[in-house]
Design a protein around this nucleic acid. Sequence first.
DNA 1: TTGTAAGCGTTATCAT
DNA 2: ATGATAACGCTTACAA
Lengths: 321, 321
Amino acid sequence: MAVTLKDISAACGISICSVSQVLSGSPRAQELSAATRKRILSTARDLGYCRNELARSVVTGKSNIVSVIVNNFTAFPPILDGICAAALEHDLTIKFISLHHGQGLSRSLLSVRQYRSVGLLGVAFEKAQLSVLDEHFLPYRIPAVVANTGVLMPGVPVVSTDQAGATCLALEHLYQLGHRKIACLGSVPPRCAAYETFMRDAGLTPRIFSERPDVYPELCKSDPDAVFCCTDNTGVQLLQWLYQQRIFIPESFSVMGFGGLELSEACSPTLSTVQEPFFDIGYQMLKILHDLIHGRSVPQHLQLPARLLPRDSTAERLPAT
Amino acid sequence: MAVTLKDISAACGISICSVSQVLSGSPRAQELSAATRKRILSTARDLGYCRNELARSVVTGKSNIVSVIVNNFTAFPPILDGICAAALEHDLTIKFISLHHGQGLSRSLLSVRQYRSVGLLGVAFEKAQLSVLDEHFLPYRIPAVVANTGVLMPGVPVVSTDQAGATCLALEHLYQLGHRKIACLGSVPPRCAAYETFMRDAGLTPRIFSERPDVYPELCKSDPDAVFCCTDNTGVQLLQWLYQQRIFIPESFSVMGFGGLELSEACSPTLSTVQEPFFDIGYQMLKILHDLIHGRSVPQHLQLPARLLPRDSTAERLPAT
DNA sequence: TTGTAAGCGTTATCAT
DNA sequence: ATGATAACGCTTACAA
């Protein structure tokens, strides 16, 4: 079995209590003589002591464990990286729960409470899944923060991309390249709304197409200068179809995505897009959760700015020939 | 504070001890009368009891926590899904540690032991990172299993794709399409080796090119029927370059990837590839770890079969014109 | 400056 | 068929 406080206490003839205080950095440790402190610390090191977080949590009634519920891991990996980075800073430990396991769902959600998690993070929840929070956790008043969901729940802060800002960033890019007939492909509500506003404000006529592949011909027939796609996935699909038709981009028209997902760099041509700040979203989620746990007041909806990622699918509008 | 055994004990006038046995499904609970059992279970439900895993672990000296160390979350998400799925079945809880945080590394590795993890899983380790296992965990005899690494460590089982099998699957596909001048692009040792063997066995001349983009022209000049790329990433890069040159695939030659990563479906044309069984790899890792923990004997190197994923970048060889 | 003792929520051993 | 009692490793009044 591992080295315990008792072992250290015995080894250097100091009471367990003092050993605990020194090793856990309690303020009262300062009252001990420097000599004892040094002795305790060095024997702890010699013996290879490693604090038992479980026992500590039993005593304090709270663990340093934050449970993160994800839809699946493929969704937004960088968010998880951000969460982990922040967890390290705040001395929290991350426990993961994946939602896609039908029968075992309630059992795996139970473990959040079994381990006395101090808080809960939800990544990429769909609307229906938000009710999970309601049912399983709201009654227990476990602080929670969610990311990338359109729905707002009272008392559950949301961290997300500034969708309107990101949309404008994309459209501004197209506009500055000289494009005026800018179509919108897709149906993500906040992005379509921001598109309409932008176009109206610029004195242009908005034209929104469904992201279904069977409207691509119609889209092309409308002879756009540029197409703003509501998601990278839609953008990639469009590019693939255009490739099959031997319609070349950006010569024929410019194409813009949204997200900055890995696949936006894999297509031909590489897709110009706006990069959602996934890492930061994760990082801020945990920071807000940490504040929430410590009773500090937090923003109900934190919107982080996206970054323009110009690549090969956009180019200056050719002067009419 | 949460409901405890003591509360239940008080509520139904049964000793804590009996309550514990019933609620944790101890065999000795069978000796209690059915009536008492029922009473305990129902009051537990009424009071909303939720077992404190932390306290339980303090007593038993082991937690049900498995620590998973990942390079970063973008690497192989489906592996993590597989791990989570298996964890649910074996009643284990998953704690994550991300490696890419320079300064805090040893602190975050410490938490593996602080939480008395029963086992360790390593995903997508690079050679250098394997030493982390050596230094930090081997001395403590924490059972470990790693995935997707070329290096074998004594006593640390590896789960991976059957690389030779997967390579043959890809090459067989090209061969059956009629291709004979099959080039290899890349430098993943087991895949290049399997390529050479396959070609020799088929009486064909192997020709291996570096994956560096500046050899693409040379590759094309060698006029291959098909190109086997050691990774999807290489395949995608090649396709992007070919697109820029307006060299069309699969008309000019067939291109094959390796991995089945998301991006292999985003390129133009979609990349034919062999799908590595990532989910299964994760699932089996945890299963093996579980066996290891319970002292059962386990395979030192489990190789799982890949699946052929024919897409648009491969086609039958045109009869010479 | 240091120690004693109680307690956290469990499980385990041994009685009854 | 059920209960006392100790123990796990730690923190935290309170005492000396």
